[in-house]
Write a protein that binds this DNA or RNA. Structure first.
Lengths: 349, 349
DNA sequence: GTATTTGTGTAGATCGGTCTACGTTTTTCC
DNA sequence: GGAAAAACGTAGACCGATCTACACAAATAC
C-alpha cells in the first residue's frame, strides 16, 4: 500500500548527478557560474528523477513565484474575465496565480490578504477591494500590489481602472442623442466612510459632468441605492412611483440594470419603447438575446493583463506608483431607444 | 523609506516572552505540555508583537493549512456556487482556500495540480476536472483528494456529484407529463477517450432510462454536440432543419440551453408555445425574468460544503473512498409548456 | 524515603530550498 | 611567463516553523 513514492529533493538530484546541492540550485535558478556540461548533467538527472522543486521551500529564502488575486465576489463574472487576462500574462512571466475570495466585508478581506502574505506570495492583485485608500496604502507598503477597479492616485501601489468618467459620458451622450432628457443615475452607496476612487464615485461624477455638457444640468437625478439585482429593482420601483418618472436610467452596473428591467417588466412598461436602461460591465447575461442590455464594456482581459504586467514590474523593483485607466466602449443593444414623446411620459397609467 | 517593518518570527516571540522557540511552537499548535501561565505569557507576547506564523514555514514540516480548489472555468457561475459552499466549511475547520484555474486542457490542468502540490497544499478539491479516472486515481494516491461533479466509484479519492440520472429523469418526466413525445437530448462529447463517470455520460444514461420508463423508447433522440452556448445553438439549428423536429429538448446544461433559445428566437419559433427547452445547473442567467429557463438545480452550496467536509476527513486520516450523490430538483420556469398539437408540429413553415 | 510517574520546558535536528563566501581552475592580458 | 581576471564549483549558514529526545521538578506510589 505504500505506493507513496517520496518526492525527489534537490539533494537527490545532486547525488544522482554527482554534484553539490548548490550547483543544482544554480541550474534551477539559471544563476551565473554553471558550465554547459554540468547544466546538461543536472538537467538529465532532474528529468530522470522526475524532480520538481518545492515552491514552499523556495519561498523560504527566495521568492515563491506565486501571485495572489484577491476577489470580492466570484459570482460576478466580470471578475473571471479580469482573471483570464491576469493568468495569461502571469504565465508568460513564470508566475502561478492563486485566487482567494472573501465576500463578507472588510475584516474577512483583511484575513484573506494576511493569509496570502503568510504564504509569502510575491505580489497581490486586489480586485475591487473594500477599505479606504489608506488601508490599501498600508498593504502596498508591505508587498508589491496592484489594485484593479479603483482609481488613483496612490503612493505605494499601482491602479488599473476603467475610465469611468468616460464610460458615464458615453452612456449619457447616447441617451441624450436619442432625445432623452430625464436621465437618472443609480449611485451605489456602500457602508464605508471614505469612498474616494471607488467606481460609484467616479461614475457619478462622470454622469454629472456629462449631463452638464449636454445642457441637462437641471435634470440631474441621482438616486442612491445598492448595485446589485434587488437594489436595482427597488430603485426602479421607487422611481416609477413618482408623478413624473425619468425616461432613461444609467443603472451603474449590469446587475442593477437587470433588477431594473425586472421591475419595469413587472410594472408592464415596455423597454425600450417607454423606458431605456443602460448597464455597466457588459457581463455575460447582458449579451443574451433575451436580455440584450445596452452596456459599457471595460475590456476586462486587457485590464487584467495590464495589471499583471504592472505587478511583475513592481516585483522586479519599480518604486514609483503608476495609475492607468483603460478606455471603455459602449455596446448598444436593445434596451435603449428613442425617448418617448413628451406628451405621453413613461409611467404607470 | 524603510517602513518595511520586519515580520515578527517565532524567535522574536520567544525572546519577548523569555521562553524557548519550542514552547512558542507548542502554544501555537495547542500541543501538550504547556502550563496555563506560560500559555498566557506567550499569547500576550504574540499579540504585543503582532505575530503571525508563516504558513510557508509551517508547511515545511507540518501542514500548510491550505486547500487547493481546482477549477476548469470560472466563467461558469455554478463553480462559484460550489466554491461558496467549500469556503464556508473550510473556514470552520481552519483551512484557507485558494483557487487555481486552468481552462486550456489536460496538460494545463496537470501543471496547475502540480503547482498546488509544489506548495504542499493539504488537500485538493477538483471541480469537473479533465482526464481519465485513472489520472485522478494517481492524484488521489499522492494527496487527499475530492472530485466534484464526476461520479464514482473510485479507489483513492472521494466523489461528490449531483444525481444526474435522477436529474435527467426529472426533466423527461416533466416534459412527458406535458404531453411531449419527441424529446431530444443534447449529449456533450469531449476530446477524451474515456469519459466514464462524467456528467455527459450519466445524464445521457438517465435520459435513455427515463424515456424507456415513459414508454418513449422509440423516440429516443441523442444529438451529439458541445455543451456551451454556440454548441447549443448549432445543435438546435440542425434539429430545426429536420422534416420532423422534436418538440422539446433536454439541453444538458444551461449554457447549451441558452444557445438553443437563441437559435429558436432567430428562427422565429415561440417558446414554450411551439418548443420547450430545459437546461441543467440553474445558473444565474436562467433565473432572469427575461430568460426564465426551466432547469435542474444541483444545490451547489451543499455539494461544496459536503465535499469540503469529506476532504477534511480524508486529511485527518480516512482511507476508504466515499462516493456521494446529492439529489437535484427541477425548477420549472417559462421555457416549458404543453406539447403543441400533433397536427401542427413545431418547425419552420 | 526511595522509585516511579506526570508535568513542564529546552536543545537541536529537520524540512528543501537559496545564497554568500571562498577555493580551485582556466583564461586573458601585457 | 607571471599576474590578474573570469569561470566554475562547493561548503555551510540561513529562512521560520515542527517535532523528537531529553532534562528537570513536582506529584504520586509503595
Amino acid at each position: 500500500m505504500s505506493e507513496q513514492v517520496k518526492r525527489a529533493t534537490i539533494g537527490d538530484v545532486a547525488l544522482h548527478a554527482g554534484v553539490s546541492k548548490a550547483a543544482v540550485s544554480k541550474v534551477l535558478r539559471g544563476a551565473y557560474g554553471v558550465s554547459e556540461a554540468m547544466k546538461a548533467r543536472v538537467e538529465a538527472s532532474m528529468a530522470a528523477l522526475g524532480y520538481r522543486p518545492s515552491a514552499l521551500a523556495r519561498g523560504m529564502r527566495g521568492s515563491s513565484f506565486t501571485l495572489g488575486v484577491f476577489v470580492v465576489d466570484l459570482q460576478n463574472t466580470f471578475m473571471s474575465v479580469l482573471i483570464e487576462g491576469i493568468r495569461a500574462e502571469a504565465e508568460v512571466s513564470g508566475y502561478q496565480v492563486f485566487i482567494g475570495e472573501a465576500s463578507r466585508g472588510l475584516s474577512q478581506q483583511q484575513q484573506m490578504i494576511e493569509a496570502m502574505l503568510d504564504r509569502k506570495m510575491d505580489g497581490l492583485l486586489l480586485i475591487a477591494p473594500f477599505g479606504t485608500a489608506e488601508d490599501l496604502e498600508e498593504i502596498g507598503r508591505s508587498t508589491p500590489t496592484v489594485v484593479l477597479g479603483r482609481h488613483g492616485p496612490s503612493k505605494s501601489y499601482d491602479t488599473v481602472a476603467s475610465d469611468d468618467v468616460a464610460g458615464s459620458g458615453l452612456i449619457v451622450d447616447h441617451l441624450a442623442a436619442l432625445g432623452h432628457r430625464r436621465i437618472a443615475h443609480l449611485k451605489h452607496v456602500g457602508r464605508e466612510r471614505n469612498e474616494d476612487g471607488m467606481p460609484q464615485v467616479v461614475r457619478a461624477r462622470g454622469y454629472v459632468e456629462a449631463m452638464v455638457r449636454n445642457g441637462l444640468e437641471s435634470e440631474i437625478d441621482l438616486i442612491e441605492g445598492r448595485w446589485h439585482q434587488t437594489g436595482g429593482q427597488r430603485a426602479m420601483e421607487l422611481m416609477l412611483e413618482r408623478p413624473l418618472p425619468p425616461t432613461a436610467v444609467h443603472a451603474g452596473t449590469d446587475m442593477a440594470a437587470l433588477g431594473a428591467l425586472t421591475a419595469l417588466h413587472e410594472a408592464g412598461i415596455r423597454v425600450p419603447e417607454e423606458f431605456s436602461v443602460v448597464g455597466y460591465d457588459n457581463v455575460f447575461a447582458a449579451s443574451l438575446p433575451q436580455v440584450a442590455l445596452t452596456s459599457v464594456d471595460q475590456s476586462g482581459v486587457e485590464m487584467g493583463s495590464l495589471a499583471a504586467r504592472l505587478l511583475v514590474e513592481r516585483i522586479q523593483g519599480r518604486r514609483e506608483a503608476v495609475s492607468t485607466v483603460v478606455a471603455p466602449s459602449l455596446v448598444v443593444r436593445r434596451t435603449t431607444g428613442p425617448a418617448p414623446a413628451a406628451i405621453a411620459p413613461a409611467g404607470r397609467s
